[in-house]
């Protein structure tokens, strides 16, 4: 399972980085989304993978068996902030497009 999650992180990150370096704003915003999945999964995986033991205290389970709640709470806020960032980025993209007439990340097409 660890291998699968690691590969998943790798593929998401590689796709994200690739898109991040592309010239069109929409590519970059999709790249940011993919990269944030990868990073969220990465942080989450730092708590190690545990099945069927959510960090919810039922009084019966041994505490050491529960999943690590710290990366989970970090990722939870990261997801919400990620949404806010995406929204802001999208609006900046739309505004740039309206003002410059292009969707190139530099606000102007390359001269070459």
């Amino acid at each position: 399972m660890e291998m699968v999650v690691a590969l998943a992180i790798g593929v998401l990150a590689a796709s994200g980085i690739w898109l991040l370096l592309r010239p069109r704003t929409f590519q970059v915003i999709i790249g940011m989304s993919l990269l944030s999945y990868a990073v969220n999964l990465f942080i989450f995986s730092m708590g190690r993978l545990k099945v069927d033991s959510p960090p919810i205290l039922d009084g019966a389970t041994d505490l050491s068996r529960l999943a690590d709640p710290v990366p989970q709470s970090l990722v939870l806020t990261a997801i919400v902030i990620g949404f806010a960032t995406t929204a802001l980025f999208l609006v900046v993209i739309i505004a740039t497009r309206g003002m410059t007439g292009t969707d190139h990340v530099d606000g102007q097409e390359r001269d070459s």
Binding site: E2, A6, A13, L41, S45
Partner: peptide
């Protein structure tokens, strides 16, 4: 860019794998 992306992705995957498999 593809080379950069593959390096980044592989690196992240490798680190994740190494850490996840350690107690």
């Amino acid at each position: 860019d593809a080379v950069l992306a593959v390096i980044g992705g592989t690196g992240l995957a490798a680190i994740a794998y190494v850490i996840m498999t350690r107690p």
